[in-house]
């Protein structure tokens, strides 16, 4: 004898989810086509569908900058971007900026200046710093501080991040507090 509870209707059917669609993203010079639901963020598409896990999920609300990638050379928060509307754009992630055998100047500078501790914010910091250099607006240390304000570092490595960015910005030179450019040797900054 079947149970009346199983036979009883369970109310209106659940609303159907919007179907996944083929989405082609141009990432690090390559076209990648994946099936995505409309609500998939660019960050989730990179990490969960394309195995590009260099880009990190921190707050997922556009506050921390860990998810920063470059779109047509400009830095954005990939957590607030719906992947499907970024078709046709040139997307660059930390993997596209450089790897173990071909470190970009910023990546090398981050190592030389010991510009991280846990390293979780670092891909976002480097993509953001690359965006800052592309913009060509920041020149002084104060300007770099202001224009890197979208990237939080929970370990507090800001001083060395600033040194690393300043070095690449000024091609191996840094601006000291009185405004003059000084060439510094490429070596790790000692802890203060």
């Amino acid at each position: 004898m079947s149970s009346p509870f199983i036979q009883a209707p369970l109310g209106p059917p659940a609303p159907a989810l919007a179907p996944a669609q083929a989405v082609t993203l141009h990432i690090n010079g390559e076209d990648r086509t994946i099936q995505l639901a409309p609500w998939t963020s660019l960050l989730d598409a990179l990490r969960e569908y394309l195995d590009l896990t260099g880009t990190k999920k921190g707050c997922d609300h556009g506050q921390c900058g860990a998810c920063t990638v470059l779109v047509d050379g400009k830095r954005i928060n990939s957590c607030l971007a719906l992947a499907t509307v970024y078709q046709g754009k040139q997307i660059t992630t930390i993997e596209g900026i450089g790897g173990e055998d071909n470190l970009s100047p910023l990546q090398q500078a981050f190592i030389d200046h010991d510009a991280f501790q846990c390293g979780y914010c670092t891909p976002g910091q480097i993509c953001s710093a690359q965006g800052l250099i592309n913009e060509g607006r920041a020149k002084t240390a104060d300007e770099v501080r202001e224009l890197m304000s979208g990237n939080l570092c929970r370990c507090g490595a800001y001083t060395n991040i600033l040194s690393a960015v300043m070095e690449v910005l000024h091609d191996g030179q840094v601006v000291v507090d009185n405004g003059t450019l000084v060439t510094i040797p490429m070596q790790p900054t000692k802890a203060i």
Partner: peptide, 9 residues
């Protein structure tokens, strides 16, 4: 207002 990343979007 905001951050460079947010202002770019």
């Amino acid at each position: 207002g905001a951050t460079p990343q947010l202002r770019n979007m």
